[in-house]
Design a protein around this nucleic acid. Structure first.
Lengths: 138, 138
DNA sequence: TGTAATGTCTCTAGTGACTAGAGGTTCAAG
DNA sequence: CTTGAACCTCTAGTCACTAGAGACATTACA
């Protein structure tokens, strides 16, 4: 059994975040010492590692809730789990696509001005002011 | 002179968002009718278009504030403006990079399970539980 | 056993960029 | 002059935390 600080160190999740996850129902309420401090064991460590990993991959708290719910019922079909992962993947792909467009536009805008002139003639500012100066939709 | 609703329609920025921008100091306080309603002119329209465009490109409110500050001083060097745009570009590139890593990992995880089995044996859940099943750092 | 340092507790409030809703007022059309 | 849409301010909620206050618990060492 170890303290919340120890759990934090091992999972690299900050202490207040652990308490937050508990409040959100992602982590079961921890056992307490006589002095009301939380104590964790291997199970708690594994669950938090799961959460941490899923958050790193961009899953929302809500999605993680669902995944944990599924984990707790090993007899169910895992279709829902793959669905969640797939839709997360789609979201990531959509974000990448959008960011690529932004990258092109920003790169074009940045290149248009070397910063050596006055704001009066700055291509960056002009581009932002006038959408017509853009290459494509965004 | 036109109303906030009209401005919203022309710029495709929602009415409460316009009021929020005013509160944040991005937009100057609008003139008011005798009945206390906001009225805008061409200048207001142009400034809001600028903001909208910059937000679309992912600039933060703070960055936009700085850009507007620069816009208001046409006699200054535009170095700061290009700096802001460049750092925005760098941020976008960093995000893309990270998302690409996530994409690969998620795609690998998703492919590992067709959703036809039980959660007990689900590769998606196993991958999330155990970081060691991952291909690379993320 | 005493004490000091560090860790932990709960609670509230703040972040960014809005969005939603309540309850009231003003405007424009007919 | 009435009706109904648009407008006003204010508060609170979103997401996933983060920061800080003030009090209590635990641990290490003398």
């Amino acid at each position: 059994m170890f303290s919340i600080g120890e759990l934090a160190k091992r999972t690299k999740v900050k202490v207040p975040t652990i308490r937050y996850y508990e409040e959100m129902g992602l982590l079961a309420e921890a056992e307490r010492t006589s002095g009301n401090q939380r104590r964790y064991d291997k199970v708690g460590l594994e669950r938090l590692s799961f959460i941490r990993h899923a958050r790193d991959l961009g899953f929302s708290i809500e999605a993680i809730s669902s995944l944990i719910e599924l984990q707790d019922h090993p007899d169910r079909s895992c279709e829902a789990a793959t669905d969640i992962a797939t839709s997360q993947l789609e979201e990531v792909r959509a974000k990448i696509k959008r960011l690529r467009t932004l990258e092109k536009e920003l790169s074009r805008i940045s290149k248009g001005c070397d910063g050596g002139g006055l704001t009066e003639d700055c291509y960056v500012l002009a581009s932002l002011a006038d959408h017509n100066l853009c290459d494509r939709e965004h």
